[in-house]
């Protein structure tokens, strides 16, 4: 099996992970595509014998964090003070989101990044706590407390939606 065909085999799962991190499916596919391109460029850094899926989850998660940060910077730089009502998200974008996105998409999107990625790896991708903690580079205790807080927030959000 070549590197490419190994990637192709896990691609459906990678797309699912990207979808659970992203605001919508189109953003998820953009993220997934970017992660594949990055993986192909960085293929020498992957150690054969280690898990390709964990390596890919890590690449994708790092790209996503970088993008989230640069978006936050852009929001801080470009949002003028007088535009109070538009600060944060553009109003019509949020309205669109309410129409287009399901409760789960919306609730996941409302979570802090660190909780969303923990939930995505464990609940969506089915990783063990140990595997998820390794992907995220945090101790197990940190991971479990993010899972507890993230779930509490989701339950609250679903409660409001119901």
């Amino acid at each position: 099996m070549s590197f490419e065909s190994d990637l192709l085999a896990i691609l459906p799962r990678l797309r699912r992970f990207a979808a659970s991190l992203s605001r919508d499916r189109a953003d998820g596919d953009d993220l997934c595509q970017a992660a594949l391109e990055k993986a192909l460029r960085a293929r020498d850094q992957w150690q054969p014998g280690t898990r390709l899926d964990s390596w890919m989850y890590r690449i994708m998660r790092n790209l996503w964090i970088d993008e989230a940060r640069s978006r936050q910077r852009a929001a801080r730089t470009f949002a003028p003070e007088e535009a109070g009502e538009h600060v944060g998200h553009a109003g019509d974008r949020d309205m669109e989101a309410h129409v287009m996105l399901s409760d789960v998409d919306r609730a996941m999107h409302a979570l802090p990044d660190e909780q969303r990625e923990a939930i995505a790896l464990v609940l969506v991708e089915g990783l063990s706590y140990k595997e998820a903690a390794e992907v995220l580079g945090v101790p197990m205790g940190t991971l479990t407390s993010r899972l507890v807080r993230g779930r509490g927030a989701l339950i609250e959000l679903f409660g409001e939606a119901a």
Partner: peptide, 28 residues
Amino acid sequence: RLRERVSGHYAPVEAEPVPPAMRALLEG
């Protein structure tokens, strides 16, 4: 139920056909 709801929500993505642009990237 929460775990079921969240995992069930994203599960269909895995079953979808992979977009051609991604497939092409990996198929040479």
